[in-house]
Design a protein around this nucleic acid. Structure first.
Lengths: 209, 209
DNA sequence: GTCTATAACCGGATAGAC
DNA sequence: GTCTATCCGGTTATAGAC
Protein backbone atom coordinates (compact mmCIF):
# COMPACT_ATOMS: atom_id res chain seq x y z
CA UNK A 1 0.00 0.00 0.00
CA UNK A 2 2.98 2.28 0.66
CA UNK A 3 3.11 3.85 -2.80
CA UNK A 4 0.07 2.48 -4.47
CA UNK A 5 -2.55 3.83 -2.17
CA UNK A 6 -3.10 7.21 -3.80
CA UNK A 7 -2.70 6.54 -7.48
CA UNK A 8 -4.97 9.44 -8.31
CA UNK A 9 -2.67 11.94 -6.62
CA UNK A 10 0.37 10.49 -8.30
CA UNK A 11 -1.33 10.89 -11.65
CA UNK A 12 -2.11 14.51 -10.84
CA UNK A 13 1.46 15.15 -9.84
CA UNK A 14 2.83 13.51 -12.98
CA UNK A 15 0.34 15.48 -15.08
CA UNK A 16 1.49 18.79 -13.68
CA UNK A 17 5.09 17.88 -14.41
CA UNK A 18 4.58 16.69 -17.95
CA UNK A 19 2.19 19.49 -18.93
CA UNK A 20 4.66 21.97 -17.47
CA UNK A 21 7.57 20.56 -19.42
CA UNK A 22 5.95 19.76 -22.74
CA UNK A 23 2.76 21.79 -22.87
CA UNK A 24 -0.68 20.37 -23.49
CA UNK A 25 -0.11 19.38 -27.08
CA UNK A 26 3.34 17.98 -26.44
CA UNK A 27 2.30 15.97 -23.40
CA UNK A 28 1.77 12.24 -23.95
CA UNK A 29 -0.65 10.25 -21.86
CA UNK A 30 1.88 7.43 -21.96
CA UNK A 31 4.56 9.59 -20.37
CA UNK A 32 2.19 10.74 -17.65
CA UNK A 33 1.33 7.13 -16.94
CA UNK A 34 4.99 6.14 -16.85
CA UNK A 35 5.93 8.88 -14.40
CA UNK A 36 3.00 8.05 -12.18
CA UNK A 37 4.04 4.42 -12.27
CA UNK A 38 0.64 3.55 -13.66
CA UNK A 39 -0.89 1.90 -16.65
CA UNK A 40 -2.17 4.33 -19.26
CA UNK A 41 -5.70 3.01 -18.87
CA UNK A 42 -5.70 3.99 -15.21
CA UNK A 43 -5.66 7.65 -16.15
CA UNK A 44 -8.94 7.12 -17.97
CA UNK A 45 -10.32 5.36 -14.96
CA UNK A 46 -9.84 8.50 -12.87
CA UNK A 47 -10.24 11.19 -15.53
CA UNK A 48 -12.56 11.30 -18.50
CA UNK A 49 -10.04 12.53 -21.04
CA UNK A 50 -6.78 14.37 -21.57
CA UNK A 51 -8.78 17.59 -21.75
CA UNK A 52 -10.53 16.86 -18.45
CA UNK A 53 -7.23 15.98 -16.84
CA UNK A 54 -5.68 19.22 -17.99
CA UNK A 55 -8.65 21.27 -16.88
CA UNK A 56 -8.57 19.74 -13.40
CA UNK A 57 -4.85 20.34 -12.87
CA UNK A 58 -4.85 23.79 -14.43
CA UNK A 59 -7.85 25.00 -12.43
CA UNK A 60 -6.34 23.79 -9.19
CA UNK A 61 -2.98 25.45 -9.71
CA UNK A 62 -4.36 28.65 -11.16
CA UNK A 63 -6.75 29.01 -8.23
CA UNK A 64 -3.90 28.56 -5.76
CA UNK A 65 -1.92 31.30 -7.48
CA UNK A 66 -4.75 33.79 -7.38
CA UNK A 67 -5.52 32.97 -3.81
CA UNK A 68 -1.95 34.00 -3.08
CA UNK A 69 -2.30 37.21 -5.08
CA UNK A 70 -5.46 38.14 -3.24
CA UNK A 71 -3.96 37.51 0.17
CA UNK A 72 -0.83 39.43 -0.84
CA UNK A 73 -2.78 42.48 -1.96
CA UNK A 74 -4.47 42.90 1.40
CA UNK A 75 -2.00 45.50 2.42
CA UNK A 76 -2.82 48.05 5.08
CA UNK A 77 0.00 50.55 5.13
CA UNK A 78 1.79 50.97 1.82
CA UNK A 79 5.33 51.69 2.83
CA UNK A 80 7.42 50.15 0.07
CA UNK A 81 10.34 49.45 2.38
CA UNK A 82 8.07 47.18 4.43
CA UNK A 83 5.70 45.80 1.84
CA UNK A 84 7.93 45.06 -1.13
CA UNK A 85 10.24 42.60 0.61
CA UNK A 86 7.21 40.70 1.94
CA UNK A 87 5.47 40.59 -1.44
CA UNK A 88 8.54 39.42 -3.29
CA UNK A 89 9.34 36.79 -0.72
CA UNK A 90 5.82 35.34 -0.63
CA UNK A 91 5.56 35.19 -4.40
CA UNK A 92 9.00 33.67 -4.95
CA UNK A 93 8.38 31.17 -2.19
CA UNK A 94 5.15 30.07 -3.81
CA UNK A 95 6.78 29.83 -7.21
CA UNK A 96 9.66 27.76 -5.92
CA UNK A 97 7.07 25.29 -4.65
CA UNK A 98 5.31 25.33 -8.02
CA UNK A 99 8.15 26.01 -10.44
CA UNK A 100 6.35 24.69 -13.50
CA UNK A 101 3.24 26.82 -13.00
CA UNK A 102 4.24 30.07 -14.75
CA UNK A 103 5.31 28.26 -17.91
CA UNK A 104 2.14 26.20 -17.89
CA UNK A 105 -0.06 29.27 -17.55
CA UNK A 106 1.77 31.19 -20.23
CA UNK A 107 1.72 28.27 -22.60
CA UNK A 108 -1.91 27.36 -22.21
CA UNK A 109 -3.52 30.73 -21.70
CA UNK A 110 -4.53 31.24 -25.31
CA UNK A 111 -5.43 27.61 -25.92
CA UNK A 112 -9.07 28.41 -26.52
CA UNK A 113 -10.07 26.06 -23.71
CA UNK A 114 -13.30 27.66 -22.39
CA UNK A 115 -12.55 26.56 -18.83
CA UNK A 116 -9.28 28.46 -18.97
CA UNK A 117 -11.01 31.54 -20.34
CA UNK A 118 -13.61 31.48 -17.59
CA UNK A 119 -10.97 30.94 -14.94
CA UNK A 120 -9.03 33.98 -16.11
CA UNK A 121 -12.18 36.07 -16.33
CA UNK A 122 -13.44 35.25 -12.85
CA UNK A 123 -10.00 35.49 -11.23
CA UNK A 124 -9.35 38.92 -12.64
CA UNK A 125 -12.78 40.30 -11.91
CA UNK A 126 -12.15 39.65 -8.22
CA UNK A 127 -8.62 40.96 -8.69
CA UNK A 128 -10.05 44.20 -10.14
CA UNK A 129 -11.68 45.35 -6.93
CA UNK A 130 -8.53 44.53 -4.96
CA UNK A 131 -6.62 46.65 -7.41
CA UNK A 132 -8.95 49.58 -6.83
CA UNK A 133 -8.25 49.40 -3.11
CA UNK A 134 -4.55 49.26 -3.83
CA UNK A 135 -4.81 52.36 -6.01
CA UNK A 136 -6.33 54.32 -3.15
CA UNK A 137 -3.78 53.08 -0.61
CA UNK A 138 -0.97 53.99 -2.93
CA UNK A 139 -2.41 57.43 -3.63
CA UNK A 140 -2.30 58.11 0.09
CA UNK A 141 1.25 56.82 0.37
CA UNK A 142 2.33 59.06 -2.49
CA UNK A 143 0.78 62.14 -0.85
CA UNK A 144 2.56 61.30 2.37
CA UNK A 145 5.89 60.93 0.53
CA UNK A 146 6.33 57.32 1.53
CA UNK A 147 6.18 56.31 -2.12
CA UNK A 148 7.40 57.80 -5.38
CA UNK A 149 4.76 58.84 -7.87
CA UNK A 150 4.26 55.56 -9.69
CA UNK A 151 1.41 53.90 -11.50
CA UNK A 152 -0.14 51.13 -9.37
CA UNK A 153 -0.96 48.73 -12.20
CA UNK A 154 2.45 49.09 -13.81
CA UNK A 155 4.03 48.52 -10.43
CA UNK A 156 2.15 45.28 -9.92
CA UNK A 157 3.21 44.16 -13.37
CA UNK A 158 6.80 45.02 -12.57
CA UNK A 159 6.86 42.91 -9.44
CA UNK A 160 5.27 39.96 -11.18
CA UNK A 161 7.59 40.30 -14.17
CA UNK A 162 10.70 40.30 -12.01
CA UNK A 163 9.49 37.41 -9.87
CA UNK A 164 8.41 35.02 -12.59
CA UNK A 165 11.40 35.67 -14.83
CA UNK A 166 13.82 33.00 -13.64
CA UNK A 167 11.09 30.37 -13.55
CA UNK A 168 10.02 31.14 -17.08
CA UNK A 169 13.47 31.17 -18.63
CA UNK A 170 15.10 28.66 -16.28
CA UNK A 171 15.99 26.22 -19.08
CA UNK A 172 17.85 28.95 -20.95
CA UNK A 173 19.51 30.46 -17.93
CA UNK A 174 20.66 27.21 -16.39
CA UNK A 175 22.24 26.26 -19.72
CA UNK A 176 23.82 29.69 -20.18
CA UNK A 177 24.96 30.29 -16.59
CA UNK A 178 25.53 26.87 -15.04
CA UNK A 179 27.58 28.32 -12.19
CA UNK A 180 24.79 30.57 -10.96
CA UNK A 181 22.25 27.76 -11.13
CA UNK A 182 24.35 25.06 -9.52
CA UNK A 183 22.98 25.95 -6.09
CA UNK A 184 19.29 26.64 -6.64
CA UNK A 185 18.63 27.90 -3.12
CA UNK A 186 21.49 30.33 -3.17
CA UNK A 187 20.52 31.56 -6.63
CA UNK A 188 16.96 32.21 -5.52
CA UNK A 189 18.14 34.13 -2.48
CA UNK A 190 20.39 36.34 -4.60
CA UNK A 191 17.60 36.89 -7.07
CA UNK A 192 15.24 37.91 -4.27
CA UNK A 193 17.77 40.38 -2.93
CA UNK A 194 18.34 41.89 -6.37
CA UNK A 195 14.62 42.28 -7.06
CA UNK A 196 13.89 43.95 -3.75
CA UNK A 197 16.87 46.24 -4.16
CA UNK A 198 15.79 47.31 -7.63
CA UNK A 199 12.17 47.81 -6.67
CA UNK A 200 13.10 50.00 -3.74
CA UNK A 201 16.00 52.06 -4.97
CA UNK A 202 16.57 51.66 -8.73
CA UNK A 203 19.98 52.23 -10.25
CA UNK A 204 20.63 55.90 -9.62
CA UNK A 205 22.60 56.69 -6.45
CA UNK A 206 20.98 58.73 -3.69
CA UNK A 207 23.56 61.45 -3.29
CA UNK A 208 23.98 63.19 -6.61
CA UNK A 209 26.51 65.70 -7.90
CA UNK B 1 2.59 38.58 -59.12
CA UNK B 2 1.63 41.20 -56.52
CA UNK B 3 1.21 38.79 -53.64
CA UNK B 4 2.37 35.54 -55.04
CA UNK B 5 5.91 36.45 -55.90
CA UNK B 6 7.55 35.50 -52.61
CA UNK B 7 5.61 32.52 -51.40
CA UNK B 8 8.60 31.33 -49.41
CA UNK B 9 8.63 34.49 -47.31
CA UNK B 10 4.92 34.31 -46.71
CA UNK B 11 5.30 30.77 -45.47
CA UNK B 12 8.05 31.87 -43.12
CA UNK B 13 5.91 34.69 -41.80
CA UNK B 14 2.91 32.40 -41.29
CA UNK B 15 5.13 29.86 -39.58
CA UNK B 16 6.41 32.37 -37.07
CA UNK B 17 2.85 33.38 -36.26
CA UNK B 18 1.43 29.91 -35.85
CA UNK B 19 4.40 28.53 -33.91
CA UNK B 20 4.19 31.58 -31.67
CA UNK B 21 0.52 31.11 -30.99
CA UNK B 22 0.24 27.36 -30.74
CA UNK B 23 3.76 26.11 -30.09
CA UNK B 24 5.55 23.50 -32.15
CA UNK B 25 3.34 20.59 -31.16
CA UNK B 26 0.11 22.54 -31.44
CA UNK B 27 0.97 24.06 -34.82
CA UNK B 28 -0.68 22.47 -37.83
CA UNK B 29 0.92 22.52 -41.24
CA UNK B 30 -2.54 23.09 -42.68
CA UNK B 31 -3.01 26.27 -40.68
CA UNK B 32 0.39 27.58 -41.74
CA UNK B 33 -0.53 26.89 -45.34
CA UNK B 34 -3.90 28.62 -44.94
CA UNK B 35 -2.38 31.76 -43.46
CA UNK B 36 0.27 31.89 -46.13
CA UNK B 37 -2.43 31.51 -48.75
CA UNK B 38 -0.68 28.43 -50.01
CA UNK B 39 -1.36 24.78 -50.56
CA UNK B 40 -0.02 22.54 -47.83
CA UNK B 41 2.20 20.74 -50.29
CA UNK B 42 3.98 23.99 -51.10
CA UNK B 43 5.50 24.07 -47.65
CA UNK B 44 7.17 20.76 -48.40
CA UNK B 45 8.37 22.15 -51.67
CA UNK B 46 10.35 24.82 -49.83
CA UNK B 47 11.12 23.03 -46.55
CA UNK B 48 11.99 19.41 -45.93
CA UNK B 49 9.76 18.89 -42.90
CA UNK B 50 7.95 20.57 -40.04
CA UNK B 51 11.11 20.14 -37.98
CA UNK B 52 13.25 21.78 -40.66
CA UNK B 53 10.74 24.60 -40.99
CA UNK B 54 10.77 25.22 -37.27
CA UNK B 55 14.54 25.09 -37.09
CA UNK B 56 14.88 27.62 -39.90
CA UNK B 57 12.44 30.11 -38.41
CA UNK B 58 13.66 29.68 -34.86
CA UNK B 59 17.32 30.07 -35.79
CA UNK B 60 16.63 33.19 -37.78
CA UNK B 61 14.63 34.93 -35.08
CA UNK B 62 16.87 33.85 -32.26
CA UNK B 63 19.92 35.09 -34.12
CA UNK B 64 18.25 38.46 -34.71
CA UNK B 65 17.50 38.80 -31.02
CA UNK B 66 21.05 38.07 -29.96
CA UNK B 67 22.43 40.38 -32.56
CA UNK B 68 20.36 43.08 -30.90
CA UNK B 69 21.62 42.09 -27.44
CA UNK B 70 25.20 42.21 -28.59
CA UNK B 71 24.82 45.61 -30.22
CA UNK B 72 22.99 46.88 -27.15
CA UNK B 73 25.71 45.78 -24.78
CA UNK B 74 28.39 47.75 -26.59
CA UNK B 75 28.10 50.55 -24.13
CA UNK B 76 30.93 52.99 -23.56
CA UNK B 77 29.99 55.11 -20.60
CA UNK B 78 27.71 53.42 -18.10
CA UNK B 79 25.60 56.24 -16.81
CA UNK B 80 22.25 54.64 -16.09
CA UNK B 81 20.34 57.83 -16.79
CA UNK B 82 21.64 57.75 -20.35
CA UNK B 83 21.97 54.07 -21.05
CA UNK B 84 18.83 52.58 -19.51
CA UNK B 85 16.32 54.55 -21.59
CA UNK B 86 18.19 53.58 -24.76
CA UNK B 87 18.38 49.91 -23.85
CA UNK B 88 14.75 49.65 -22.91
CA UNK B 89 13.62 51.49 -26.00
CA UNK B 90 15.68 49.38 -28.41
CA UNK B 91 14.56 46.12 -26.85
CA UNK B 92 10.88 47.05 -26.70
CA UNK B 93 11.02 48.34 -30.24
CA UNK B 94 12.48 45.07 -31.44
CA UNK B 95 9.92 43.06 -29.51
CA UNK B 96 7.01 45.06 -30.86
CA UNK B 97 8.23 44.13 -34.33
CA UNK B 98 8.52 40.47 -33.29
CA UNK B 99 5.82 40.13 -30.66
CA UNK B 100 5.56 36.36 -30.91
CA UNK B 101 9.27 35.74 -30.41
CA UNK B 102 9.54 35.65 -26.60
CA UNK B 103 6.70 33.16 -26.26
CA UNK B 104 8.17 31.02 -29.01
CA UNK B 105 11.59 30.95 -27.37
CA UNK B 106 10.22 30.20 -23.95
CA UNK B 107 7.96 27.48 -25.26
CA UNK B 108 10.48 25.67 -27.38
CA UNK B 109 13.64 26.13 -25.38
CA UNK B 110 13.55 22.78 -23.64
CA UNK B 111 12.18 20.89 -26.60
CA UNK B 112 15.25 18.73 -26.89
CA UNK B 113 15.78 19.92 -30.46
CA UNK B 114 19.59 19.76 -30.81
CA UNK B 115 19.64 22.78 -33.12
CA UNK B 116 17.96 24.84 -30.41
CA UNK B 117 20.45 23.63 -27.81
CA UNK B 118 23.40 24.53 -30.01
CA UNK B 119 21.95 27.91 -30.81
CA UNK B 120 21.56 28.74 -27.13
CA UNK B 121 25.05 27.50 -26.36
CA UNK B 122 26.79 29.46 -29.08
CA UNK B 123 24.75 32.62 -28.54
CA UNK B 124 25.51 32.72 -24.84
CA UNK B 125 29.17 31.90 -25.19
CA UNK B 126 29.57 35.06 -27.25
CA UNK B 127 27.31 36.85 -24.81
CA UNK B 128 29.60 35.78 -21.97
CA UNK B 129 32.56 37.86 -23.07
CA UNK B 130 30.30 40.87 -23.63
CA UNK B 131 29.06 40.41 -20.11
CA UNK B 132 32.60 40.46 -18.78
CA UNK B 133 33.17 43.81 -20.43
CA UNK B 134 29.94 45.08 -18.97
CA UNK B 135 31.01 43.97 -15.50
CA UNK B 136 34.16 46.05 -15.75
CA UNK B 137 32.37 49.11 -17.11
CA UNK B 138 29.83 48.89 -14.33
CA UNK B 139 32.50 48.47 -11.68
CA UNK B 140 33.99 51.77 -12.82
CA UNK B 141 30.61 53.47 -12.83
CA UNK B 142 29.97 52.27 -9.29
CA UNK B 143 33.32 53.62 -8.06
CA UNK B 144 32.55 56.95 -9.67
CA UNK B 145 29.12 57.05 -7.99
CA UNK B 146 27.24 57.15 -11.28
CA UNK B 147 25.63 53.82 -10.43
CA UNK B 148 24.37 52.16 -7.27
CA UNK B 149 26.16 49.02 -6.14
CA UNK B 150 24.26 46.44 -8.13
CA UNK B 151 25.05 43.05 -9.61
CA UNK B 152 25.58 43.29 -13.40
CA UNK B 153 24.05 39.93 -14.29
CA UNK B 154 21.01 40.45 -12.10
CA UNK B 155 20.59 43.88 -13.64
CA UNK B 156 20.59 42.49 -17.17
CA UNK B 157 18.03 39.90 -16.10
CA UNK B 158 15.89 42.63 -14.57
CA UNK B 159 15.81 44.67 -17.75
CA UNK B 160 14.98 41.67 -19.87
CA UNK B 161 12.32 40.49 -17.42
CA UNK B 162 10.57 43.86 -17.40
CA UNK B 163 10.76 44.24 -21.17
CA UNK B 164 9.48 40.83 -22.21
CA UNK B 165 6.70 40.70 -19.64
CA UNK B 166 3.82 42.23 -21.58
CA UNK B 167 4.66 40.22 -24.67
CA UNK B 168 4.72 36.97 -22.73
CA UNK B 169 1.49 37.48 -20.84
CA UNK B 170 -0.31 39.57 -23.44
CA UNK B 171 -3.20 37.12 -23.83
CA UNK B 172 -3.88 37.25 -20.10
CA UNK B 173 -3.43 40.96 -19.73
CA UNK B 174 -5.50 41.97 -22.74
CA UNK B 175 -8.34 39.82 -21.42
CA UNK B 176 -7.99 41.15 -17.88
CA UNK B 177 -7.39 44.82 -18.71
CA UNK B 178 -9.08 45.48 -22.04
CA UNK B 179 -9.00 49.24 -21.50
CA UNK B 180 -5.25 49.41 -21.17
CA UNK B 181 -4.73 47.24 -24.24
CA UNK B 182 -7.22 48.93 -26.51
CA UNK B 183 -4.55 51.28 -27.84
CA UNK B 184 -1.45 49.11 -28.24
CA UNK B 185 0.90 51.97 -29.09
CA UNK B 186 -0.13 54.03 -26.11
CA UNK B 187 0.12 51.02 -23.81
CA UNK B 188 3.63 50.27 -24.98
CA UNK B 189 4.69 53.87 -24.44
CA UNK B 190 3.35 53.85 -20.89
CA UNK B 191 5.01 50.55 -20.21
CA UNK B 192 8.33 51.91 -21.47
CA UNK B 193 8.06 54.93 -19.24
CA UNK B 194 7.22 52.80 -16.19
CA UNK B 195 10.14 50.42 -16.79
CA UNK B 196 12.68 53.20 -17.22
CA UNK B 197 11.35 54.99 -14.16
CA UNK B 198 11.60 51.89 -12.01
CA UNK B 199 15.05 50.92 -13.27
CA UNK B 200 16.41 54.37 -12.54
CA UNK B 201 14.75 55.38 -9.29
CA UNK B 202 12.86 52.50 -7.67
CA UNK B 203 9.93 53.15 -5.38
CA UNK B 204 11.50 54.96 -2.45
CA UNK B 205 11.40 58.76 -2.65
CA UNK B 206 14.63 60.74 -2.83
CA UNK B 207 14.09 63.15 0.00
CA UNK B 208 13.55 61.15 3.15
CA UNK B 209 12.37 62.03 6.64
C1' DG C 1 5.56 25.60 -59.06
C1' DT C 2 1.08 24.10 -57.88
C1' DC C 3 -2.42 20.83 -57.12
C1' DT C 4 -5.21 16.16 -55.63
C1' DA C 5 -5.15 11.97 -53.59
C1' DT C 6 -3.33 8.91 -50.49
C1' DA C 7 0.12 6.52 -47.73
C1' DA C 8 2.10 5.83 -43.14
C1' DC C 9 2.13 6.73 -38.58
C1' DC C 10 1.01 8.15 -34.05
C1' DG C 11 -1.61 9.01 -29.98
C1' DG C 12 -6.06 9.39 -27.50
C1' DA C 13 -9.56 6.54 -26.17
C1' DT C 14 -12.30 2.11 -25.36
C1' DA C 15 -13.68 -2.93 -24.97
C1' DG C 16 -13.47 -6.43 -22.19
C1' DA C 17 -10.94 -9.97 -19.33
C1' DC C 18 -9.44 -10.62 -14.67
C1' DG D 1 -8.95 -1.32 -9.76
C1' DT D 2 -5.74 -3.00 -13.04
C1' DC D 3 -4.32 -4.97 -17.30
C1' DT D 4 -3.82 -6.27 -22.74
C1' DA D 5 -5.21 -5.58 -27.14
C1' DT D 6 -7.21 -2.77 -30.41
C1' DC D 7 -9.84 0.89 -32.78
C1' DC D 8 -10.23 5.26 -34.90
C1' DG D 9 -9.30 9.93 -36.09
C1' DG D 10 -6.16 13.22 -37.19
C1' DT D 11 -1.51 14.81 -38.98
C1' DT D 12 2.80 14.64 -41.34
C1' DA D 13 4.58 13.58 -45.50
C1' DT D 14 4.86 11.82 -50.41
C1' DA D 15 3.55 10.19 -55.18
C1' DG D 16 2.46 11.77 -59.24
C1' DA D 17 -0.48 14.57 -62.61
C1' DC D 18 -0.51 19.10 -64.67
Amino acid sequence: MSDRENMRDRIKQATAEVFGERGYDGARMQEIADRAGANKTMIYYYFASKEALFTAIFSENFAALFQLFNSILQVEAVDPKVVIPQLVHLHLDFLSRNPELPRMIIREIQSGNPVVEKLVQSSFSRFGSQLQTLREEMAVAIREKRLREVDPLQTVWNIVALNIFIFIVRPILSAAFPDEFADAGRMLAEREKAIVDLMLYGLVPRQEA
